[in-house]
């Protein structure tokens, strides 16, 4: 077993709340997010998501929870053999949704994030900012109950960063719980949401 990355980390995200997660590099932000989007299981402790203890939940019950969580990965994790449109539609496709039912919504969302002209481009030809926006669109397309974003504005200019943040705020108003990991203090100041501050694997909550 490796070193303990997170300890004494206790917090509660109320439904429909908006939080930032911040802290220095290596503090454990990504590890905490990985635990929340079920890419890792905790070695000890309790993580309750939607009322279920995900540390002990059987494997076959995880997909149902994952479908209610939207994730924006720091490294985007777009599938290189698929177009931007296909990447964004992926969460709907794996739910057996009919293309006719979601096609116009996906295109509209892509236009909203400024990728209306890049529908058929594959990720390899997208810029960092475009990949970021495609990753955000994929995370929100399924109207998740919880949105987790790891540095979602790290590769975009300040104007676009604020525009993307507004998308998160709009989602939040519709009832989605938002947790955004970021180093961008300007953004955090501007939106004024509570901050979870991780340092040396321990957590403080600043309202």
């Amino acid at each position: 077993m490796g070193p303990e990355v997170l300890r004494n980390v206790s917090f509660h995200l109320a439904p429909g709340s908006f939080h930032f997660l911040t802290g220095p590099s290596g503090a454990g932000k990504t590890s905490l997010l990985q635990l929340l989007f079920l890419a890792q299981r905790p070695t000890r402790g309790l993580i309750s998501i939607f009322g279920q203890d995900v540390a002990t939940l059987p494997r076959h019950e995880l997909p149902a929870i994952r479908r209610r969580i939207g994730v924006v990965f720091q490294d985007f994790r777009l599938l290189n053999h698929m177009t931007t449109y296909e990447n964004v539609a992926l969460p709907l496709r794996i739910r057996d949704a009919k293309k006719a039912d979601y096609e116009s919504n996906v295109i509209e969302l892509l236009r909203w994030v400024g990728l209306g002209e890049r529908l058929n481009a594959i990720p390899e030809v997208l810029s960092g900012g475009e990949k970021q926006r495609a990753a955000i669109a994929r995370a929100v397309v399924g109207r998740p109950a919880l949105l987790l974003a790891d540095e979602p504005t790290g590769n975009v200019d300040p104007d676009l960063a604020q525009r993307l943040l507004r998308l998160f705020v709009e989602l939040n108003k519709l009832g989605t719980t938002i947790l955004i990991a970021t180093h961008d203090f300007t953004l955090m100041e501007k939106f004024g949401a509570p901050r979870l501050v991780l340092e040396d694997g321990e957590l403080e909550i600043l309202s």
Partner: peptide, 19 residues
């Protein structure tokens, strides 16, 4: 203001899982 909570929880807000 600093607050500490006993557990890490995210409450349920949305629809049921697909069967």
């Amino acid at each position: 203001m600093k607050k500490k909570f006993p557990n890490t929880t995210v409450e349920e807000t949305a629809a049921t899982a697909t069967h």
